[in-house]
Simulated scan of single mutants.
Amino acid sequence: MATIERLKEMKFGYTIIYVNKVADALAFYENAFGFEIQFLHESGDYGELKTGATVLAFASLELAEANLGRRCLPISAEAVPTGIELAFVTEDVQSAYQHAVACGATPVREPAEKPWGQVVAYVRAMEGTLIELCTPMGG
């Protein structure tokens, strides 16, 4: 059994979003949010973006089935958003929001200042992931 000291060494490494077409998702996030493609496997089933301290990754629904032994519920741009969001931090939320929408993101909420002073906007990515565009906390 792991000791608490060993668990303290754990860190958050990456998020994987399962999508129909990994290359399309990578291209969208590169164009809409400016993240650089770090890796796309030759099979087209897995790819990663450089996003800072952690990695945002995409895997095909087929790879999900192979890894999990069953299909996962796919994200859909037409369905109600799932109960998770990605937050991308920027000093200029308005410009980021406008650019993302111009690149095909679906607008959800225009930028607004929250009571705690943070500016926040919401869009949905091409595959349906809910994305928060926000200023840094405490800024």
Rank of each mutant, 00 (worst) to 15 (best):
R71Y: 07
T135S: 12
E48S: 02
A64Q: 11
M10C: 08
M126G: 10
T82E: 03
A100G: 12
E5P: 00
L40H: 05
F35C: 07
A53M: 13
P115I: 04
W116K: 02
R71W: 04
L40I: 14
D45I: 14
C134A: 15
E132G: 05
E36M: 08
C134T: 09
P81W: 01
P136I: 06
I16K: 00
I16M: 08
L73G: 04
V108L: 11
E110H: 12
L86C: 08
M137C: 06
M1A: 13
E91Q: 15
P74D: 01
F58N: 04
V19A: 12
L56Q: 00
T90N: 01
P115W: 06
E65Q: 14
L61H: 10
L61R: 04
H41S: 11
L86M: 05
K114G: 02
L26R: 05
E9A: 13
A59K: 02
A121H: 11
A79S: 15
P81A: 03
T129H: 06
K114L: 14
P115G: 05
T90M: 05
A2T: 09
D45M: 14
L68Q: 10
F58R: 10
D92A: 10
Q98K: 09
E65K: 10
L86E: 01
N67W: 13
T90K: 13
F28S: 00
M137K: 03
P74E: 01
E127F: 03
K21Q: 14
E5T: 09
I16E: 11
G138Q: 07
V89K: 07
E110G: 15
V22P: 11
G117H: 14
R109D: 15
P136V: 03
G47N: 03
T15V: 15
M1P: 04
S95I: 04
Q94C: 05
L86S: 06
M1N: 06
R109H: 07
F28P: 00
T129V: 12
L63M: 13
E62H: 09
E78Y: 10
F88K: 00
E42V: 08
P74F: 00
F58H: 10
V89L: 06
H99P: 00
A125C: 14
I75C: 00
R109Y: 08
L63N: 03
C134I: 01
